[in-house]
Amino acid sequence: MTGRVIVITSGKGGVGKTTTSANIGTALGKSGASVVLVDTDIGLRNLDLLLGLENRIVYTLVDVVEERCKLKQALVKDKKNPNLCLLAAAQTRDKSAVTADQLKEICEQLQEDFDYILVDCPAGIEDGFKTAISGASEAIVVTTPEMSAVRDADRIIGLLEAKEEIKSYKLLVNRVRPNMIESNDMMSVEDVVDILSCDLIGIIPEDTGIITSTNRGEPIVNDENSLAGKAYMNVAKRIQGEDVPFLDINEPKGFAGFIAKIKKFFGAKG
């Protein structure tokens, strides 16, 4: 078995790389594929927190690299889904603890046992980024419809194109607010795709549920009612080769709108 190594990167910080990694990983795991999430944000790890696994980490990526433990010992199984594993980053070290070659070797080892290896990349374009993309053959570039994030994404795509090993890269537009686009206060998804001239793999609407899910340590794809969760599910399906139409993130119409109206009638929130 040779798994696919996908790096999730963005250049700019705070656009949702870690959230995306956690959710796509969980979604892929739910569909039955075996998935390992590799956190390469050494020193500023957060992926364990999003998955609610921070109390189970004994060995980290750095311990594997420095041969204090075997690779399998360092893999933390998810609470709910046995298909999903986490290889956590060390909190007490910095990016220089792991080199590009070392991570590449780890990714090659993981490829034998897992269908998908998702590498959560740190922000920036320095050594941390170069290390993270070293083992990958595919990339997902996360951006938000803001000028600064789009510009950084453009820089990242340039760097990814320069790297031969990366065969394909896809764009994921995060934190989209349909009503702001409607009033011309935000760039539309089409604008972002036009500027970056890059294939789209997903549109994730802004969702307050993300904050609660992060605090609770439970990825939002586990919440079936969340729009962002559904959008992440669709991204996972597209990664697996399914042709899924993009989610309509505009004001709910039809049956959903009917429910929304009734909710309004009773004064329910959300």
């Binding site: 079936e224 009734i262 009773f266 004064g267």
Partner: peptide, 15 residues
């Protein structure tokens, strides 16, 4: 606790 709760629960169940 309130009618809003009921509708909220119901709408999630009937989906």
């Amino acid at each position: 606790q309130s009618p809003a709760d009921i509708v909220f629960e119901l709408s999630s169940i009937i989906e």
